[in-house]
Design a protein around this nucleic acid. Sequence first.
DNA 1: CGCGATTTGTGCACGTCTTCACAAGCGCCT
DNA 2: AGGCGCTTGTGAAGACGTGCACAAATCGCG
Lengths: 256, 256
Amino acid sequence: MSQHRHPGAPGRAGAVPTLPDLPEATVARLPEYLRALHNLAEAGHETVSSEGLSGAAGVNSAKLRKDLSHLGSYGTRGVGYDTALLIEQIEYVLGLTQCRAVALVGVGNLGHALAGYDGFASRGFRIAALFDADPTRVGEVINGLAVRHVDELPRVAAEESISIGVIATPAAAAQPVADQLVAVGVTSILNFAPCVLSVPEGVDVRKVDLAIELQILSFHAHRKASLTALPATGGSALTALPGGRAATDTQEAIGT
Amino acid sequence: MSQHRHPGAPGRAGAVPTLPDLPEATVARLPEYLRALHNLAEAGHETVSSEGLSGAAGVNSAKLRKDLSHLGSYGTRGVGYDTALLIEQIEYVLGLTQCRAVALVGVGNLGHALAGYDGFASRGFRIAALFDADPTRVGEVINGLAVRHVDELPRVAAEESISIGVIATPAAAAQPVADQLVAVGVTSILNFAPCVLSVPEGVDVRKVDLAIELQILSFHAHRKASLTALPATGGSALTALPGGRAATDTQEAIGT
DNA sequence: CGCGATTTGTGCACGTCTTCACAAGCGCCT
DNA sequence: AGGCGCTTGTGAAGACGTGCACAAATCGCG
């Protein structure tokens, strides 16, 4: 039953824009659905079934339906979901209707790449400013944007309305940088430095550690190797392994 | 009681190296513990309490103890964990005792940064080869390693024993590259391209999508904004927000 | 107009993860 | 030797996430 309706959707003015408080797992999947939907829309599909969309997003179709049902859902039984409408819905829920300004701190190896990554701009994020603590790096122009000294953060934050801070500094510099970001009012931080940040309540920190991902893969490789080494009497078994539990956000197969 | 013992640990030769099959959530946290332990060891701590280590790793202490108990645990009641021993244990379980060779495909913006990222080498991963499909990029030397054409993958894979493949290509190229990696025997893939890969059973794929992380942050920012907009009768409430559920691998606070 | 094919939305059961709370064990000090 | 404080390891309960299976709803066609 559509006992819940979620106004505040694009086009619906007036009513209270009550955001349904989605399960975290669902939130983490919505961007994936969104990407798949954009692909489908470009391919000319006006509607998609849960089966089709879930396939494109690499998840179970029941999971997809439950996820979408959480946001009030705009599907039609017997037909599927209206592609364009669903895109609008998800973008609204994710807060992507407004273009968000991102401040990137740390223009080293990784920061350089992030500054030039076009995957951000294409999904509604605008890199508004680049910072670094190294004076020799200040002034360098990357992708049309000049690197400023990190001390200028307060001034720049006042001009641009910074919504998200990205930390791509060495581990030692990350905590002070986080403190500075918080001080200028940033409440969302994406941390690439391999360390734990401590921030006041109300500030969200997401961490991405590339080495950790490799280590998780290493574990599974190690486990697979130790499984093939023993149980197979033959010895050098390189054939199909017994499918183990896959990681949370890991796809473990599905051929073709 | 210590009814389970896990031989195969460093130093223990002979016995069956039965890897305990850890919960995925635990595996994902072990690398974080490992990093914290290295820091503590460098700082001179010979032992750590679960409280101390969990603090450094940003998790609950009970969770830490349960995680460590899964791998047979080498703690001493009333004292804590022997730092060096625990490092050895975790590194063994994660399969980091052997240095793993990584092949990186796609030397664009992001691939460039990954090739130069020293966080890999410092944690037991050696970037053994760089590939790209673009002939103009082939031959370029990055960090002392020459970029080869992706067609050379089979030959190089035969020389070096590639353990993990990293895909940093545009989305359109990712699937064919994955197929090629699988063809040469790679069973662990880290995918930075924004698309779903389909691989045969037994191959592990982990996906890292930078834009998705930003979108998740965007959602929380949006939610926080819509919460402050309404419930506070005063209007412009910029003060402390009601603490909501934090994301799975998201720290949401704990000030000093 | 009615019927069947199709697809959504969801109740329910199951497995996994988290957290609390506490007994068991260890070392130190007297 | 004995007791005391501290810390680990773990049972149990609750929260969360997943997937099945099916009722409800919609469309198209005869």
